[in-house]
Each structure stands twice: as structure tokens, then as C-alpha cells.
Amino acid sequence: MLTHAIDQGVLVISFHGEIGISDRAAVALETERLVRTCSPHCVVVELAESAVSPAGVSLVLRAHRLCGQWGMPLAVVTSAPEAQQLVAANAGSAGPLVFATVAQAVRGLSRGQELAS
């Protein structure tokens, strides 16, 4: 359901497989633990097509709020149009940036970090 990698200060968390409401709390706690213990500069959440569900989108938005509280930029990666629409519809105007690939998300966040410096 959740895998992660760290590359040059970027934490990439991948949600994959079917994530149900009953799984959401455990996955959310693991996501928070990773963000807290890895101390990344920014976070990329990859939502695989198999993880697109109300619970999967809820996890993405929860991670976005968590990172926002800690002043850490977050981007979402998904190729599923349904997920892109759900994230945008539920996040409001301050929602996360959505990209098609992890590489694009890392570049996008890196540019944002450079502009903030």
C-alpha cells in the first residue's frame, strides 16, 4: 500500500494497491512517521491508479495539510485523470501541485525552493 524513497532531500511516498477506509488510519500514521523521521526538504506523493479512491485522495490531502503545517512543500503525482480531478475538487485553491511524473514533481518543487531562497 505504501512505499517510499529519499533522493537528495526529497521524500517520495507512493500509495499503490487498493486503499480502503479501514486502511486509511494506518497509512496516514505511516506517512506522518516518514515525514517526521526523514526530515525531507519537500515531499512528493505518488498516487497510483490502483490507489485512486476516496480513501486514497483523503490520504493525499491529509499529507498536504501535514506538510503545510510544517512549512514543507508537497506535490502529487498521478496519471489518473480521475485522481487529478478529485484532488483539485477537494483541495480548494491552496491545493497541492499535481504532476504526471515524479521527475516533473521534483523539478517543480526544486524550482519553488529556489524561488523561496
Rank of each mutant, 00 (worst) to 15 (best):
L2K: 10
L2D: 09
T3V: 10
H4Y: 10
H4W: 14
I6W: 05
D7K: 03
V10R: 06
L11A: 06
L11I: 06
L11C: 09
I13Y: 02
S14R: 09
F15M: 05
F15P: 02
F15R: 05
H16I: 07
G17D: 06
I19Q: 00
I21Q: 02
I21W: 00
I21L: 01
S22N: 05
D23S: 06
R24K: 08
R24P: 00
A25T: 09
A25M: 09
A26R: 08
E30R: 15
E32W: 12
E32R: 15
R33C: 02
R33M: 09
L34M: 12
L34V: 11
V35M: 14
T37K: 08
C38P: 04
H41R: 15
H41K: 15
C42L: 13
C42P: 05
C42N: 10
V43Q: 12
V44L: 03
A48D: 05
A48H: 05
E49I: 02
S50V: 09
S50I: 08
A51L: 07
A51Y: 03
A51C: 03
V52A: 01
S53R: 01
S53Y: 00
P54T: 04
G56H: 01
G56A: 00
V57Q: 02
V57Y: 06
V57E: 00
L61F: 12
L61T: 14
C67D: 13
G68D: 10
G68T: 11
G68P: 14
W70C: 06
M72H: 07
P73A: 13
P73T: 10
L74I: 14
V76W: 11
V77D: 01
S79C: 03
S79K: 02
P81V: 02
P81R: 07
Q85Y: 13
Q85A: 14
Q85G: 08
Q85D: 15
V87P: 10
V87H: 09
A89M: 15
N90F: 14
G95A: 13
P96R: 10
V98S: 10
V98F: 08
F99V: 05
F99H: 05
V102H: 00
Q104S: 04
A105V: 02
A105T: 01
R107A: 11
R107G: 03
L109F: 08
L109R: 06
S110M: 13
S110A: 10
S110P: 04
R111S: 13
G112C: 11
G112L: 12
G112T: 07
E114C: 03
L115I: 14
A116V: 09
